[in-house]
Design a binder for these strands. Structure first.
Lengths: 192, 192
DNA sequence: GTCTATAGCGCGATAGAC
DNA sequence: GTCTATCGCGCTATAGAC
């Protein structure tokens, strides 16, 4: 097997484990079992657990923000853009057979036990999401698709916290069904 | 020291640790250092970690829901009630010197690694909060303090996920300041 | 009720053969 | 690049003296 394939398999397994169990609930042993490789071989690719988490956050952040950019640059209406943005979180929730949280939402909860580099990358993810959401909101306000009072930046922060929270809380209750109800109600509150 | 005092000190220390580090980041060793008691003495009060977490969730849930009930039964307007409800989360965030998450929000993220009893108690906490929020929202709608379309239950679920998420996310960014901005924007969206 | 001592395990990480 | 073997630590939990 090529380096790249094994590396990717390790990253995939680690991400899945963190999204379900958290970083402190994920171990090299668990990855080893999921990938079918011995524990020390993982250290060949990722010397320390912190190395692994940093690269995971980078990969996740790049991918997610790229999807958000695709939405932002599309010809969709602002309302459609926001719906597609919420759908990114819904897709995370129901990826695979088990409910998964957003990688950066989960790691945000465990932020205190992470290294400084990972923490900075997670903050970057939050900031960039809020920036892009702000743009969508302002566009929708201008086109009169959204009708809300107050600061669009604060509303973006609200929506981001809402979606991250909804994914975490929905896993304990009715899962995707509950998430959809909340996302729909969000659109209603924005008068979309 | 009386049994009750030591017991309470252990519970307080454990709660503080979980709210900052998560359940998987909290250990009997850490509690031991915070309380000034040896590790095995903690097992005298709480034989297993699962026992400890169960009692913690019970205590937290009882206390928090009692506060919510006080708000619900008060003579305040619905708008004031919702503001006071959000302030409960804000108070959690800035309790002590370090930013703390809601105990049940943090444990919700780690739900997969908890025992069934604890998980059930956490779900109960979520459900009861949403119930009480629904009542406040319906009251405010009737009095025309709130003006929103759609289901009040879905809006309650939205607000609860929002506040839980906001507490978790705010810890990584601007803390209380950010939380306040979001809470204020929520009131605006409800036209309160 | 609190202690010392320790069992037994899983963890992250390293050494070194192949 | 992957393996076996192993180190050293922190964890939950128990035994038993005081």
């Amino acid at each position: 097997m090529s380096d790249v394939e094994t590396r990717t398999k390790i990253l995939n397994a680690a991400q899945d484990l963190i999204q379900r169990w958290g970083a402190n609930g994920m171990s090299y042993q668990h990855i080893s079992e999921a990938v079918g490789i011995r524990k020390p071989s993982i250290h060949h690719y990722f010397p320390t657990k912190e190395d692994l988490i940093e690269e995971l956050v980078d990969r996740y952040s790049d991918y997610f923000l790229k999807m958000v950019d695709q939405i932002g640059e599309s010809q969709d209406s602002a309302k459609q853009k926001l719906q597609r943005y919420a759908a990114l979180f819904e897709a995370t929730l129901r990826a695979g057979s088990q409910d998964k949280a957003c990688l950066c939402g989960m790691l945000g909860a465990e932020l205190a036990s992470l290294g400084n580099n990972s923490a900075a990358k997670i903050r970057h993810f939050y900031r960039e999401n809020e920036k892009r959401l702000t743009r969508i909101l302002e566009e929708g306000r201008k086109s009169r698709e959204f009708r809300f009072e107050g600061d669009s930046g604060a509303t973006a922060a609200l929506i981001f916290s809402l979606l991250e929270g909804a994914v975490l809380i929905a896993r304990a209750q009715d899962g995707v069904k509950q998430f959809r109800g909340i996302a729909q109600q969000l659109m209603t509150l924005l008068k979309a």
